[in-house]
Design a protein around this nucleic acid. Structure first.
Ligand SMILES: [Mn+2]
Ligand SMILES: [Mn+2]
Ligand SMILES: [Mn+2]
Ligand SMILES: [Mn+2]
Lengths: 222, 222
DNA sequence: GATAGTGTTTAGATATATCTAAAAAAAATA
DNA sequence: TATTTTTTTTAGATATATCTAAACACTATC
């Protein structure tokens, strides 16, 4: 028997955060990191981890950090699947801009109806990626990980195509709109300023701009 | 300043129930009736009513029953608007059957995003009625009340068109599917059995069947 | 008008999710 | 290794939403 669907919104959000902070379940996550991510206190996190551990959706030993269990990982991936499918819906069908969808998807991702998400997937034509370039897991949590690296980790002279951008900041996405960067944009690295890691780049072989390291950290190329 | 959006899911559901039980705010609602509707205890209802009263979304005097305030009515109607728009979406776009939509809409109706519901309305072509024939209020709570009466209150010889059916029971809607009754079906009352109120009716001038008074209570004709 | 019965409210308890403050454990540093 | 600092956990409190049991208030009946 699976526990899917028996978790509260809050528990689902914790699981998702643990999954993300652990690099898809690879590393273990500290209490403080989770508190920061969830915008809450370490004490609250400790409480919740103990609860999730009792439900066997995370692996946890006191003072040793936490990680998703096999079951927890599947639950997290299904929430992520819903989040990203709803984002596609909002952009493709309801004409939302890509900076307007994340907060609404944070609500919609907790709707419990397997039929709904199956039909939505079908309605959208079984999309593989969300509006920010992130892959959409199938109902078994499977997805194709395409090779990609942050712009900030590329070298001078490299040309790449934007395949994904960080999705949760409205201001960041509006900035990308302004400078003309979107999924599919071709970027050439002209120079890297050692002092602060900012980069001079050419966008679609036309416009040249300088972006900060923070910006470059949140753009992935392939 | 409006309080819209500051209510919990639970509070929204109470408001909606009060609105419905009061015949759209006309009559006052008893604690026991509300407890029955909400599948909870009178004690819980008393607690919640006091809370809603403090927030001024209901009018309430101890032992005198409760009713929605002007503000509460608008909040209730906006939740109902969302419920019915989502039901249209599920049937029209995701090919749900009309008996599959209510429970999912009970969840979706609490999503907070004015932009979402505005765009959804547009995407659906500004529908006036939901899949069960219930009118969809606009964002100001306005809707056109079409004259309709329950099949159970019509006379022998009357012919009418089904304009609405009770939406919350899967079994009832599946039954209607089976006997061939849907929105738009023409019904002629052939006979009314005094003993139990059951009715012999003709469906679309073809098939004749007998329906119980309970069934007839949940079908509205115009 | 007293009394029995029904309906409603309050009191006190439980469960979830949060917080602050204090205690305990682990890590870093001297 | 001993001490300090940081991290993590626990203890105790608050707020929401629920329950059962008891008290209270209306209503109907004698
Ligand atoms: Mn997102
Ligand atoms: Mn996204
Ligand atoms: Mn419904
Ligand atoms: Mn309906």
């Amino acid at each position: 028997m699976t526990l899917t669907g028996m978790l509260s919104f809050v528990e689902e959000n914790y699981l998702k955060a643990i999954y993300h902070l652990s690099n898809s379940g690879e590393e273990s996550v500290t209490t403080n990191a989770l508190a920061e991510e969830m915008q809450t206190t370490p004490a609250s996190v400790s409480d919740m981890i103990r609860k999730l551990s009792k439900k066997e959706v995370v692996n946890y030993k006191k003072y040793q950090g936490v990680n998703v269990s096999e079951e927890g990982k599947l639950i997290a991936l299904r929430v992520i699947r819903k989040h990203r499918l709803w984002e596609v819906f909002l952009v493709e069908k309801l004409e939302f801009n890509w900076d307007e969808v994340h907060d609404v998807a944070e609500q919609l991702e907790h709707i419990k109806s397997p039929l709904l998400i199956q039909r939505l997937d079908e309605f959208l034509g079984f999309p593989q990626y969300d509006p920010h370039g992130d892959p959409i897991p199938d109902e078994n949590g499977q997805f194709t990980e395409s090779k990609r690296e942050p712009l900030s980790q590329t070298q001078i002279g490299i040309t790449g195509v934007v395949v994904a951008v960080e999705d949760s900041g409205t201001a960041f996405l509006k900035y990308l709109d302004k400078v003309g960067i979107s999924i599919g944009t071709k970027i050439t690295v002209e120079d890297i300023i050692e002092f602060d890691g900012s980069m001079d780049i050419t966008i679609d072989q036309k416009k040249s701009i300088t972006v900060s390291q923070t910006v470059a950290d949140n753009i992935w190329l392939a």
